[in-house]
Design a protein around this nucleic acid. Structure first.
Length: 263
DNA sequence: ATGGTGGATACTCCA
């Protein structure tokens, strides 16, 4: 049975519920992994999401910041969540669905200064990525049919940003972050699904910032949102879509969905 | 070197 998985940082589910409905209608994912819902688990709009075809939800939310959820057309099992870096700040949720173990992450953005000595947020981000890699290795993720998605807040490859030379000292694209990402891939036996379909040097972006109003028009993008699969799923990957059109809708999220088809 | 915009919150933090 095919399984279509989407990941999307909606930057407030309350603000993006109509966009989510439109995206779901256009792309028909079986499962959607959401990040930055920015609401409590109690205020999650489960009924509205059931109405647009997603009656099953696993939510890990809090007031104001962060928050993740997995919504699904299909029933799932083994709902799970983990606390990372000793903080329960709602950055991970997992389920088993359609024969795969699905993990949804929101990695800390890391602040502005790419120095863990001067910037606690950057230290937190590196620690979070390190913990993910340790978990993937210890839990033997590589031996299972697993999919890891989410806003990992790292653009690891040269063509994952609009200008590598200019941005390699910027948080999100520094060599140390790329190394942490590579360690995660190795620890989990993970394949970079979008790059399986669209290898470098083609540019691949999922995020265009708000701060420069022309960012999308000029394609000043970054690839911060990831879909990773274990080796057992390599041959199951059928199609990869980056739903760029959502960034042109009125009052968009700064991130666009990434969609993977598994057979 | 700096500032730009958006979302949640409550006179400011985070991205």
């Amino acid at each position: 049975m095919p399984l279509r998985i989407a990941t999307w940082n909606v930057n407030s589910l309350r603000q993006r519920i109509d966009h989510l409905a439109r995206f779901a209608k256009d792309h028909e994912p079986d499962v959607i992994c959401l990040q930055e819902i920015k609401m409590t688990t109690e205020s999650f709009p489960a009924e509205a999401l059931a109405e647009i075809g997603y009656p099953h939800a696993q939510v890990h939310g809090q007031k104001g910041y962060n928050g993740v959820a997995i919504i699904s057309r299909r029933r799932f099992t083994k709902p799970d969540r983990r606390v990372w870096c000793g903080r329960d700040d709602c950055r991970h949720v997992a389920v088993n669905v359609g024969g795969v173990e699905l993990h949804n992450f929101y990695v800390p953005a890391g602040g502005d200064i790419p120095d863990p000595e001067r910037n606690d947020k950057f230290a937190h981000k590196l620690q979070f990525l390190t913990e993910m890699a340790k978990w993937a290795r210890k839990d033997k993720l590589a031996e299972r049919k697993a999919v890891l998605v989410g806003d990992l807040n790292v653009a690891p490859l040269e063509n994952d940003v609009w200008n590598h030379k200019r941005l390699r000292r910027n948080v999100g694209h520094t060599p140390v972050e790329a190394e942490h990402m590579a360690k995660l891939w190795a620890a989990g036996g993970l394949i970079d699904a979008p790059r399986h379909f669209i290898p470098e040097p083609e540019q691949l972006f999922t995020w265009w910032g708000y701060r420069f109003p022309q960012a999308f028009a000029k394609n000043y993008g970054w690839r911060l949102d990831h879909v990773l699969v274990t080796e057992a799923l390599r041959k199951s990957m059928k199609k990869l879509t980056i739903a760029r059109e959502t960034r042109t809708w009125e009052k968009p999220s700064d991130h666009v969905p990434v969609v993977l088809d598994l057979k």
